[in-house]
């Protein structure tokens, strides 16, 4: 540990309203910490700038998964393990359940939370492309009340979000309207488990009469933010899946993403793999996505 514990203060008020009033009272001073799977890594490296931490771990208000006829509301404090074992998440939102199973090891999955993943806002986060594909909405909460915002434009720049300093994410809402979609996810990491993605894909689509009726594609690690590939989707929509479409989809993907060279991979590799993943999805869709 390169940080000095005496330089940090951690409080655990134990209830959501107490946390929110603390955040409201000293705006921007307190860093909420849930499972700590991101915060403690920075702390251990001696690189955590925040000095005051407020624990939101296991707040009952944030740890619920509520099922409504039109949507599922996942408390921001739900862990990856919570998502992995939840029947309905697995059945109706397999992309999210998959992503939860990819993240870290079992210990990380027992501590890391979906809300933390969103707020930490890494472009390489495994779960976020799934949320884009499912057109999630976020319920944000502060001492002044709640607001509901679309997730699609929540990330504004590299590791910057629309969350106000006195706000927490209360829940992630996913509409239950994708039962007829063929879903496909793939993470390309440097090894099979416990790795940070070099490229990851979440996608779903609906085929009708051999034509791609509707499609949603999102990727991680290919841009400063988790990216929904809207132009690629448009280039594919209402077309039959053939060699020409695969070629076009690869090209549009490569043009739409903004990959970089970094310590983990190269831009050219990421661009090629991103195109391959979209093509692979379309091929799987054409052979296995006929029903519906």
């Amino acid at each position: 540990m390169r940080a000095h514990p005496a330089n940090y203060e951690l409080v655990a008020p134990g209830g959501l309203s107490a946390v929110l009033s603390l955040l409201a009272k000293e705006r921007g001073v307190w860093l909420p910490i849930a499972g700590g799977t991101d915060v403690m890594v920075e702390y251990a490296a001696g690189k955590l700038p925040a000095r005051k931490l407020v624990s939101i771990w296991n707040l009952p208000e944030l740890r619920r998964i509520e099922v409504f006829p039109g949507e599922i509301r996942i408390g921001a404090g739900c862990t990856y393990t919570d998502l992995r074992v939840h029947d309905m998440v697995g059945r109706e939102f397999p992309l999210l359940a998959n992503a939860a199973s990819w993240t870290g090891g079992i210990a990380n999955q027992n501590r890391g939370t979906i809300g933390g993943n969103i707020v930490n806002a890494s472009p390489a986060a495994d779960s976020l492309p799934a949320l884009l594909v499912y057109e999630a909405e976020l319920i944000l909460v502060s001492a002044n009340g709640e607001r509901r915002v679309p997730y699609s434009n929540f990330h504004v720049a590299y590791r910057k979000t629309r969350l106000a300093p006195d706000e927490l994410i209360r829940a992630v809402c996913l509409p239950r309207c994708f039962s007829r979609y063929y879903a496909h996810a793939r993470k390309v990491g440097p090894r099979k488990a416990q790795a940070i993605a070099k490229v990851c894909l979440a996608a779903q689509a609906r085929l009708e009469n051999g034509v791609v009726e509707d499609i949603r594609v999102a990727m991680g690690s290919v841009a400063p933010v988790p990216l929904r590939l809207v132009r690629t989707e448009d280039s594919i929509k209402r077309k039959p899946i053939d060699a020409a479409l695969l070629r076009l989809a690869r090209q549009t993907t490569a043009a739409e993403i903004q990959p970089i060279d970094d310590i983990r991979s190269t831009a050219s590799y990421r661009a090629a793999v991103a195109g391959n993943l979209v093509a692979e999805f379309l091929q799987a869709l054409s052979t296995r996505g006929m029903q519906g």
Partner: peptide
């Protein structure tokens, strides 16, 4: 160990 990649048992 996050960025220096050794294989795990899964590999």
């Amino acid at each position: 160990m996050t960025n220096y990649i050794m294989p795990t048992s899964a590999d």
